[in-house]
Design a protein around this nucleic acid. Sequence first.
DNA 1: AGCCCACGTGCAACCAAGTTGCAACAGGCG
DNA 2: CGCCTGTTGCAACTTGGTTGCACGTGGGCT
Lengths: 146, 146
Amino acid sequence: MPAAQTNTSPQIERIHALGARATPARIAVLRLLESAEQALSHREIEEALATGFDRVTLYRVLDWLVETGLGHRVTDTDRVFRFSLTSPANAAHKEHAHFRCEGCGKVFCLADIPVPAPTLPAGFSGKTVEYCITGQCARCDDKDHS
Amino acid sequence: MPAAQTNTSPQIERIHALGARATPARIAVLRLLESAEQALSHREIEEALATGFDRVTLYRVLDWLVETGLGHRVTDTDRVFRFSLTSPANAAHKEHAHFRCEGCGKVFCLADIPVPAPTLPAGFSGKTVEYCITGQCARCDDKDHS
DNA sequence: AGCCCACGTGCAACCAAGTTGCAACAGGCG
DNA sequence: CGCCTGTTGCAACTTGGTTGCACGTGGGCT
């Protein structure tokens, strides 16, 4: 018979692989972000996980995600940080574009669109590139046409 | 002999052309941003204009700049808004890339680098594009090599 | 030149997102 | 099974930005 499988899940393994502790908060956030198709803000995560984790704990889990390279942080135009996981399949995190919808406020990761590499002035060395398009997403655009 | 020319300056004319009042705060901000070669944050503006304008007044002047189309607001990765003028020469504001230096924290407008137009998924309609590179600017890069 | 009033300003209080310090707690290795 | 160290929860704080309201003034009108 299958034993209680709480002590082994893909999330826990992933956390252990980093030599970190698999705590409820980390597992929950990881699980949530894996199933999210857009970058989530701290607020959104807090609401989705109505499990009573402390605000600060979530902030720290999210910081930890970014530190370990598991996650990725973008600053939204409305002054909030949004978090998403680096694609779980390929460890090498390829930079990708983001699309922010003015209608529903959601932020989509446009994995298909490669971020164009910039040619910088002499002396400047680039490290990371943010490429964010703002407009209407398919659903909201559709709604407007009705 | 030239009379006191306080009652007519390029800034004042520009403000009047919009049907707005030419107040000291607006003139000062406009003048400052015109001479700035990078996007400035509210804080930077406040410090540059040690003239004792109220925090709120500056926020409102900046909002007004954006509203009237005179200015342009970008959200920096450190959660602060930065403001720059839409190029005074050509009314049509051409989108341009930004470069944020991790060393000195300054944000440069890379007018030379055209923002690559993205190809969006079906149904998505883009409006504005933000393209921001983070790294080391020429000066800070130089300092590192010493 | 002076008047008037809508548009701007200053102040104070407020808000939301994020950070810090510290004591209590609990994964997971021995 | 117990300990040690990495996490958590709480509370207080910081920073950047916003709001409401009374007062002040730019500038068109006379």
